[in-house]
């Protein structure tokens, strides 16, 4: 079986499990929608203000929603012994881990990207800004999954892991937040989003190479 076959088998397996456990999948999506809808209620419905805070609010909400699902990225596989089998497989653990991260993004990240334009409409964003928002989330949410995987692996089976994972990953999420929300802001203020988006893409490239490796090392330590 070649590397791609293994990768797609892992992704298919995780998607299948997620689809049969729908409630967990929908939790982060609902969270995103509700948090984003609560802000106008707390701040007021003045359109100028909403348009101004939209990029930040939507990005922070997406970031928190993505973090909400981090705990179960490895916890179930750890509890039922699958993670042990992965670590003992002759297939490199990094490949299996990459598959799991990809599946996590498809389940927890991609739905946020797809629903974001609807939420953007609530904030009266222009079609152009909506497009930039979608692109920034498309580049940014995989980054959140990749960085989050490191935190999830480090806190695997640790006391109070749920709170700890946010303490570990939130500081590391800051660049993604700055460039992601910044892209939309720059587009609204007419500065052009290209710079922010290319930096976001650069970070994503870096994380694609670095994060699975760090996650693998952390998982091996957790299994000892």
């Amino acid at each position: 079986m070649n590397a791609f076959g293994v990768l797609s088998a892992v992704v298919r397996r995780d998607l299948l499990v997620a689809l049969r456990r729908k409630s967990e999948v929908l939790t982060s999506l609902f969270f995103f929608v509700i948090v984003a809808s609560l802000f106008p209620l707390g701040i007021g419905s003045e359109m100028d203000l909403l348009r101004k805070i939209a990029p930040g609010v939507l990005w922070v909400a997406a970031l928190l929603a993505a973090m909400l699902s981090l705990n179960r990225l490895f916890a179930n596989d750890h509890a039922d012994g699958t993670l042990e089998q992965m670590a003992l497989s002759p297939v490199p653990l990094g490949l299996l881990v990459s598959g799991k991260i990809l599946a996590h993004w498809l389940v927890a990240g991609l739905p946020l990207v797809l629903i974001a334009p609807l939420l953007g409409l609530q904030y009266d964003l222009s079609p152009r800004a909506l497009l930039v928002l979608v692109i920034s989330l498309l580049l940014g949410t995989p980054l959140l999954s990749l960085i989050g995987a490191i935190g999830a692996a480090l806190t695997l089976g640790v006391r109070g892991g749920g709170v700890l994972v946010s303490l570990l990953t939130l500081p590391l999420y800051i660049p993604a937040l700055i460039f992601g929300a910044g892209a939309v802001e720059a587009d609204i203020s007419g500065l052009g989003a290209a710079g922010h988006l290319s930096l976001l893409a650069a970070l994503l490239t870096l994380a694609v190479f670095f994060a699975p490796w760090a996650t693998t090392a952390a998982l091996k330590i957790a299994l000892e």
Binding site: V17, D80, T82, E84
Partner: peptide, 11 residues
């Protein structure tokens, strides 16, 4: 083969 069966309940 460890204590756990490494089976996914949903599958």
């Amino acid at each position: 083969l460890g204590h756990h069966n490494a089976l996914k309940e949903e599958l």
